[in-house]
């Protein structure tokens, strides 16, 4: 049984210019206990995908899907109230900025216990005990003291740990982390990722890690899904994506990050895509990367399909980059 199974999920928003489709036919599968990375620039729809799965879209959004199941239950068949309850028990999400996700008016204990109470522990003493357990599980020192403190008294990393504690209160099978470390310092960043991966291992909890940092993904995920303009561009195992990206967009993203050993006095410039991500209501005809793509040709005015490439994964491109071994062969000729 798949933990998460999405077929052709689309999300549309009504605007005065007509409906705007922010997610276009997303299909995704996640196994139990898998770590999936989702990458893309801002505006590519990463966060929208997370919200759609969690059922947190604003009421005017129109969600359509052929199939959307979490833990074997088809969510499209449930009514709104049932769906909300079901998702709450099976999935959790943490957001980018812990300081803004926590309520500054209440102390950590109140907020944490509110979540615990929602998940069915009624007795005051047990709630408190559970809260302490959770804080310890996420590596917070002196949990007794922290319960009485307010978010502004804790550091950013500590607040993010509290958020994670709240997220795992229901023992979810799926945890979505939407850029969990962008607001944090480098040293804290690695601690939070370690923690998430540890929870993934010890609790067999699926983890969807949404980020724009490839370096982060390289260490922690098994599969990576690259998004652009509301579509999935490439979906393959992390090793394949990093060693030989087949989609021009993935390659451009990877090449635009400075790598170890490439220092300034070599005079090297980074590769960068021209222009920027198109506005979602002014998409180019055909392939959405088209105008920015270095490999674009006539055929790219037709919309490419997300096709399976053998021994690699899914790629949405008319002219995928040949795998690195093939390229070397060509050079020898």
């Amino acid at each position: 049984m798949k933990l998460l199974h999405i077929e052709n999920l689309s999300v549309e928003f009504p605007t005065h210019k007509g409906n705007v489709r922010v997610l276009d036919k997303i299909s995704l599968r996640m196994n139990q206990g898998e770590v999936l990375g989702v990458v893309g620039e801002s505006g590519s729809g990463k966060s929208m995908l997370a919200l759609a799965i969690m059922g947190l879209l604003s009421p005017n959004a129109k969600l359509t899907a052929d199939y959307l199941s979490l833990n074997g239950q088809d969510l499209m068949k449930l009514n709104l109230d049932q769906r909300r309850k079901y998702i709450a028990q099976n999935a959790s999400i943490i957001f980018q900025e812990p300081q803004t996700s926590l309520n500054p008016c209440f102390n950590i204990g109140t907020q944490l216990i509110e979540t615990i109470e929602l998940h069915g522990i009624r007795r005051r003493k047990k709630q408190r005990q559970r809260a302490l357990e959770l804080l310890e599980a996420v590596g917070i020192t002196e949990p007794e003291l922290r319960l009485k403190q307010y978010p502004h008294q804790l550091s950013g990393g500590m607040n993010q740990r509290v958020m994670i504690a709240m997220a795992i209160a229901a023992e979810p099978d799926l945890l979505i982390a939407d850029e969990p470390t962008t607001a944090l310092d480098v040293t804290i960043q690695s601690q939070i990722i370690e923690l998430l991966l540890e929870l993934n291992r010890t609790r067999d909890m699926g983890l969807m890690l949404i980020t724009h940092d490839f370096a982060l993904l390289s260490e922690s995920t098994q599969r990576v899904c690259v998004m652009y303009s509301g579509q999935i561009m490439e979906n393959a195992s992390t090793d394949n994506i990093l060693s030989s990206p087949r989609h021009p967009y993935t390659k451009a993203l990877l090449d635009s990050i400075p790598h170890i050993g490439e220092r300034h006095h070599m005079g090297q410039r980074l590769y960068s895509l021209k222009g920027r991500i198109p506005a979602i209501d002014h998409l180019p005809v055909g392939c959405r990367l088209g105008p920015r793509c270095p490999r674009a040709a006539k055929e790219c005015v037709k919309t490419p399909r997300l096709d399976m490439i053998k021994q690699h994964g899914l790629v949405r491109c008319h002219f995928p980059i040949p795998s690195s071994t093939q390229v070397e062969g060509e050079r020898n000729d």
Partner: peptide, 15 residues
Amino acid sequence: LDVSVQAQILNLLMN
């Protein structure tokens, strides 16, 4: 800035 734009600005600074 976004990753791909970061590279553009970084190249600009170096140029």
